[in-house]
Design a protein around this nucleic acid. Structure first.
Length: 551
RNA sequence: GGCGAGUUGGUGAAGCGGCUUAACACACUGCCCUUUCACGGCAGCAUUCACGGAUUCGAAUUCCGUACUCGUCACCA
């Protein structure tokens, strides 16, 4: 076909497209941003399912845009109707809000470069395709799915490269008359790229994370527009990221193999190339096979991002974890700068792991524990309440009803330089502090006490009635416990007991243990005296009574 | 199978040709502190960087080959 014929073809194929490339180039001028500003984007498909890998890339998008005073936008990539799930898009935006990864523009966030939903950009894609047809870089292909399958089969047998290219691209050089005949026949067609590449040539791509990558030139006539007139990912990527002026495409590593195509598309379209940063997948060592594998929806509960919300992993702790996977030197920096915000750290692509990053649950939990240990009781209370309101309304009511005591309990041993680390998620609070709320305590009724030991109830009753003074200091209180221990044939220190066990019935620790079990229902607890002070003598006696009834 | 990438301890990893007798963190173990747990302190935890070869005075670090793992090869993104 000569140019005149291609023009005619373009008009026949896209009679309704009247705008031109120039129109869009003018409509979407460059943003007025400082030098070095990065423009990033998160482009989820509308299934609405967000997994850890997605969250990680969105996190990186946010962090890089933010630290360069750039822009981070949300684009819904809903080019495939089969992927539409009811409420999916709403879920994506609500997840972004829940995890505090807020785009500066984009779908539902406003901005000058919209529409930010690919299904609303069909006219734009078609305008550029029309132009490519005129310029001889795209053509309608009428091959049936059966034909393509047959070619693939043949290619598999011959062990040649799979795809529609070179001699296999039979519709590449159809004459205008042949195309018209197909059209008259109402044959369905797609628009394919007429790839100018030669695989004998090598191209070099610099990936911001992976460094220098070499590939053979792309030569497959990839589909640009599907038969419903909708673009494929690759084409939409080129058009959108150009028109929206993305500077850095941060995406999963599964895209590196399509890099030659994307580079070629940018070239043919005359766009300045974007920079790519391909993030390594999050992996896990499979418990059964021992192999490293990509995390999966079915096998790994923490793959779906809902898990973190439902279990009450604090967002800030999750951010810390995402930051440690994003940059390998973050963890050390944070250790030295525990009071700084994530955004004070300077993230860089060359500190990003090239290989797969394994999900380290223990590390996440440790981050969480440290997070909680540094929070005051009031904050832990407020955040836990917020979580419970969403996920455990029964507990939320109890928290509200017991607010002041609850905060006191949560504040035990928080003042010193060595705060406790006993909570790693909001959902732990209910369990760890079950003794803090009477109704919960009574419901549990010592069922969690693993100790089979028989405690001397009368002895403890004697202690509480005759020795216990709650209006004193911890030190004086403990001295009195020791005194009581000695008077009753117990050693005042575990060491004494250890040296001469035959001289004693036990030691102070045993008495404390008995008290602890009776008033908290557990063998481990924060500082005993603090708990008793908050509880008060009446409740202490009441709980001992409960214990007596149970045994 | 083609193409691309990765491979350092129990885990996440630092390392970019001599400063490495392989950092740091998490986990684990032991001891100490101690009324329990936690916290904290001390100590231990890869003589070795998947394997084989090459380059070099010198390699975890460069090159080649092998193995394994991962990604991709859709009118899905």
């Amino acid at each position: 076909m000569n140019e005149a014929e291609r023009r005619e073809l373009a008009e026949i194929l896209f009679p309704n497209i009247t705008k031109t490339r120039e129109y869009y180039e003018e409509k979407y001028p460059e943003r007025n941003l400082p030098d070095g500003a990065m423009i990033t984007r998160y482009g989820p498909s509308p299934t609405g399912f967000v997994h850890l890998g997605n969250l990680l890339s969105a996190f990186a998008d946010m962090v890089y845009a933010r630290q360069t005073n750039g822009s981070f936008f949300l684009r819904i990539e809903d080019t495939d109707q089969k992927r539409m799930v009811d409420g999916g898009i709403e879920n994506i935006t609500s997840v972004l809000h829940d995890f505090d990864i807020i785009p500066t523009e984009g779908y539902s966030f406003g901005g000058e470069y919209g529409p930010y939903r690919q299904s609303e950009r069909t006219e734009i894609y078609q305008t550029y395709v029309k132009d490519l047809i005129v310029r001889g870089y795209a053509y309608p292909c009428f091959m049936s799915e059966e034909e393509i399958a047959a070619i693939k089969e043949e290619q598999e047998i011959n062990k040649t490269k799979i795809g529609i290219y070179g001699v296999y691209a039979t519709d590449r050089d159809l004459s205008l008359e042949e195309v018209k005949a197909h059209l008259d026949n109402n044959d369905e067609y797609v628009i394919r790229l007429k790839s100018p590449g030669n695989p004998k040539n090598e191209i070099e791509v610099i990936d911001c994370i992976k460094g220098k990558l070499k590939f053979p030139e792309h030569d497959i006539d990839t589909i640009l527009l599907k038969k419903d007139g909708t673009p494929t990912y690759h084409f939409a990527h080129a058009i959108d990221d150009h028109l929206m002026h993305t500077t850095h495409v941060i995406r999963g590593d599964e895209w590196v193999s399509s890099l030659p195509l994307h580079i070629q598309l940018f070239e043919i379209l005359g766009f300045t190339p974007v920079k790519y940063a391909h993030i390594a997948p999050i992996t896990i060592k499979d418990a059964e096979t021992g192999n490293i594998r990509k995390i999966s929806k079915r096998k790994d509960p923490w793959f779906g991002v809902k898990y973190y919300d439902e279990n009450g992993i604090p967002i800030e702790a999750l951010h810390l974890y995402l930051a440690t996977i994003t940059n390998t030197n973050f963890e050390e920096w944070y250790l030295q700068n525990p009071d700084k915000s994530i955004f004070d750290f300077e993230f860089s692509f060359d500190k990003q792991a090239i290989g797969g990053t394994s999900f380290d649950e223990a590390k996440l939990m440790n981050l969480c524990k440290t997070y909680f240990s540094r929070k005051k009781g009031e904050e832990v209370y407020e955040e836990t309440l917020k979580w419970a309101l969403k996920h455990d309304s029964e507990y939320a009511e109890l928290l509200i009803a017991n607010k002041s005591d609850m905060i006191k309990f949560l504040n035990i041993e928080k003042d010193g330089p060595r705060p406790r680390k006993d909570i790693s998620k909001y959902s732990d609070v209910k369990e760890e502090f079950s003794y803090a709320i009477d109704s919960l305590f009574e419901k549990e009724n010592y069922s969690k006490n693993e100790s089979e030991k028989e405690y001397d109830i009368d002895l403890i009753l004697d202690y509480v009635n005759n020795y216990l003074d709650l209006d004193t200091t911890n030190e004086e209180w403990f001295n009195k416990v020791k005194e009581f221990a000695t008077n009753n044939g117990y050693a005042s220190s575990p060491k004494d007991y250890k040296n001469n066990p035959e001289n004693y019935k036990g030691h102070v620790g045993d008495i404390c243990e008995a008290i602890r079990v009776m008033i908290t229902g557990r063998l481990k607890s924060p500082d005993l005296f603090s708990i008793m002070k908050i509880l008060g003598k009446d409740k202490i006696l009441h709980r001992i009574e409960l214990y007596k009834n149970k045994h």
